[in-house]
Amino acid sequence: MSELNTFLFNILLFSLFFNVGISLYGIFARPSLIKKIIALTIFSDTANVLAIAVGYRGWPSPSQPPIPPVITTTEPSIDDLTWFARQAVDPLPQALVLTAIVIGLAVTLFLVFLTLQVYRLYGTTDVRRVARLRG
C-alpha cells in the first residue's frame, strides 16, 4: 500500500513540475497577452498546490488518513493535542497559500484590466505589435 502512496505522490510532484514548465513556456513564448495571463494563473496555482503538497504528511496508515488542521473539541486535553499533532496536516502552508491566492487575485485582476486597456489603445493584444517602446 505504501508503495502505491509513494507512487501517487511522485506522480503528483512530477506533474507539478511539468506544469511549471508548461506555464513558463506559455508566459514567455505565447504572443497573446490573454494567453500569457492564463499561463500566469496556471503558474501561480501550481505554486500554491506545491505549497499544499509540502504540508501533506504521509498517511500514518491506510485506515487512519491525516485530518484537517482543526481542533474539534472546545477544551482539548493533552492527549487530544498529542493525537492532533500526530495526525493533522501542517496548517502553515495553507495559511501561506491563502495569502498568495489573495495577492494573485489582485495582480491578475490588474493585469486583465491593463490588457483590456492595451486592446482599446492598440487594437491588438499581440505582444509583437505592442512594442512602441524600444531602444
Binding site: 509540502v54 502552508p93 494573485g104
Partner: peptide, 30 residues
Amino acid sequence: PEAVEAAIKYGLFGAVATTLYFIGLVFIYA
C-alpha cells in the same frame, strides 16, 4: 498607450518573479 504598455510589461514579468520567489520559499519551508 506607452504608459499602459510599460505597465503590462512590468506587471506580467513581475508577477512571474514574485511567484518564483514563492516557490523558493516553499522549498525553504519544506
